[in-house]
């Protein structure tokens, strides 16, 4: 009758539920959440878009001068991620030479527009 005993213990104790919108669920630091791009660091190498398994990253025009290894590069493209297409696998982060694209430990959003992009 361990079920009965535990049932009544639970009835008298506090529930363990996290009242989500009021109190936040702890998110570990390693959590792979929403994708983010630091535009200053990006050298436009297209590695992330090549490696993305979901083909969520497209390269759009973004001419800019960037520093890389002490040299000044003239990049032409920058990445654009379709937020709802991203599978948060972290391959772009793993293969980015400068750490410009990375996954924040934040929750992604939800919305009515399926075409939202992160640039």
């Amino acid at each position: 009758m361990s079920v009965l005993r535990e049932m009544f213990e639970n009835l008298l104790s506090r529930p363990i539920t996290i009242l989500y919108p009021k109190e936040k669920v702890p998110i570990p630091g390693a959590f792979r959440g929403r994708v983010a791009i630091t535009d200053e660091k990006c050298i436009g190498c297209s590695k992330c878009s090549l490696v993305c398994p979901a083909r969520a990253i497209t390269m759009i025009d973004g001419p800019r001068e960037v520093e890389f290894n002490g040299k000044t590069l003239n990049r032409k493209k920058r990445p654009q991620v379709k937020l709802y297409k991203c599978i948060r696998c972290g391959l772009c982060e793993r293969h980015c030479p400068t750490g410009a694209i990375f996954l924040k430990n934040e929750l992604s959003s939800s919305g009515t527009d399926g075409e939202i992009v992160v640039t």
């Binding site: 009835l11 529930p15 363990i16 539920t17």
Partner: peptide
């Protein structure tokens, strides 16, 4: 509610 509390939920 009672069922939920017995299952350690808020209900």
């Amino acid at each position: 509610k009672i069922a939920a509390r017995m299952q350690q939920r808020v209900g």
